[in-house]
């Protein structure tokens, strides 16, 4: 039987399209689970905590980032409740004083200088502007890291392809520049790449 001339071409194209759209977006990221199933919602609703109670600024104005175990142990020195997750957290981390190795969704690469103080205190930006509704989440979603570049998926943005005209949802340089332009701030390379 003779194969129609266009068929091999079509098969190749369809296979590539399927692989590129269905398999590639999953294959490009490796996924890690956070060490503790932390609920921002529980801490915000039941304990009445605000973002900067844990993600605080130090006395010198620098941002402390993810709180250390000491901060957690301030309330969780003993189990608060009877859930298995609470017991596991106390046994694995608080009692042996073992710092959880969190995966930082918003970690910028080494060549970027980012000041939370400048953006939050001077610029008046809300945490949600960059980090989304993290404070309402009931559990920590898996951390996804680009297998090649090593960047967090939150830096790249949720869409697999970020065309120049799509600047939403990420924390890449294009996103920083777009936000600065939108607010009428001048910027130079050395503002971020010191």
């Amino acid at each position: 039987m003779k194969i129609p001339g266009f068929l091999p071409f079509a098969v190749g194209a369809l296979a590539a399209l399927a692989a590129g759209w269905a398999a590639f977006p999953h294959a490009i990221y490796k996924t890690e689970r956070q060490p503790v199933d932390f609920s921002h919602k529980v801490h915000a609703d039941k304990a009445g905590q605000k973002c900067d109670d844990c993600h605080s600024f130090r006395a010198d104005g620098t941002f402390a980032g993810i709180p250390s175990l000491d901060k957690c142990a301030g309330c969780h020195a003993a189990p608060m409740g009877t859930t298995a997750a609470e017991k596991s957290f106390i046994d694995q981390y608080v009692t042996p004083n073992h710092e959880p190795q969190w995966f930082d969704y918003a970690r910028q690469p080494q060549n970027v200088w980012f000041s939370h103080t400048t953006h939050v205190k001077l610029g008046g930006l809300k945490c949600e502007s960059c980090h989304g509704a993290m404070g309402d989440s009931d559990s920590l979603r898996p951390y996804q890291e680009d297998r090649i570049s090593g960047y967090s998926r939150d830096i790249w943005g949720r869409p697999v392809v970020r065309a120049a005209f799509r600047t939403e949802g990420g924390m890449k340089m294009d996103d920083c520049v777009a936000c600065h332009r939108q607010r009428g701030f001048t910027h130079s390379c050395l503002d971020c790449h010191k």
Binding site: G5, P8, F9, A10, V11, G12, A13, L14, A15, A16, L17, A19, G20, W21, F24, P25, V160, V161
Partner: peptide
């Protein structure tokens, strides 16, 4: 032809 089709198809994917 198969390889050419795959190459053209790939161009229309994010990869």
């Amino acid at each position: 032809k198969l390889a050419g089709g795959a190459a053209v198809g790939a161009m229309f994917t994010p990869a």
